[in-house]
């Protein structure tokens, strides 16, 4: 969390400048959509064809990629600084993203298999503890908090906006 002494402006860290990778990714995406449109045997349809808008969008992407590439060439020197620090940071972010994604998948499956309340309690508690600097001390806050969360989830998703759950082990 940022310091409140900061001004509202300039709170967002500056975003990285688009690099070579982005240009290549965009071009590959656009070309593969166009190639797919050419080789696929689409059902004929009125008003253009199913591939009309995707091909237009891809054309737009290709044009933009070209512009970006030209600009990169313009000030090429500064953009190729894939330093070790940045690589390291990238790996960290990828790891965190993966873990969070797996947590989400695990939580959703646990809701189906173990039951809404149990899964919510367990997963939010694990999540909070994993992010706490001193898990043992945080336990005093985390336990009542997650219990309250689990109960409100139960109210929300079985009473207010019921979701379809398979027959779980617990509730």
């Amino acid at each position: 969390m940022s310091l409140p002494t900061q001004t509202p402006e300039g709170a967002v860290p500056d975003t990285p400048a688009p690099g070579k990778g982005l240009v290549i990714a965009l071009s590959v995406l656009a070309c593969s959509v166009i190639a797919h449109a050419v080789v696929t045997d689409w059902r004929p349809s009125p008003g253009g064809n199913p591939w009309l808008v995707p091909v237009i969008a891809s054309g737009l992407i290709l044009g933009c990629a070209l512009l970006l590439a030209l600009r990169l060439r313009g000030h090429a020197a500064g953009s190729d600084n894939l330093t070790a620090a940045r690589m390291h940071r990238g790996r960290d972010i990828a790891g965190a993203t993966l873990c969070t994604g797996l947590w989400g998948l695990g939580f959703f499956h646990a809701v189906q298999e173990m039951g809404l309340v149990t899964a919510t309690f367990l997963f939010t508690a694990v999540g909070m503890l994993a992010l706490s600097p001193d898990p043992r001390r945080a336990l005093r806050v985390v336990l009542p908090l997650t219990l309250a969360v689990a109960i409100s989830f139960w109210l929300l998703f079985t009473r207010l906006a019921p979701i379809v759950l398979s027959d779980p082990l617990f509730w």
Partner: peptide, 20 residues
């Protein structure tokens, strides 16, 4: 509140809300 308490709850809510 410290984000360490908020983030898991928000993500869990987003998942179940989307499923709902």
């Amino acid at each position: 509140l410290p984000p360490r308490y908020i983030l898991p709850v928000v993500l869990a809510l987003a998942i179940l809300g989307t499923y709902a």
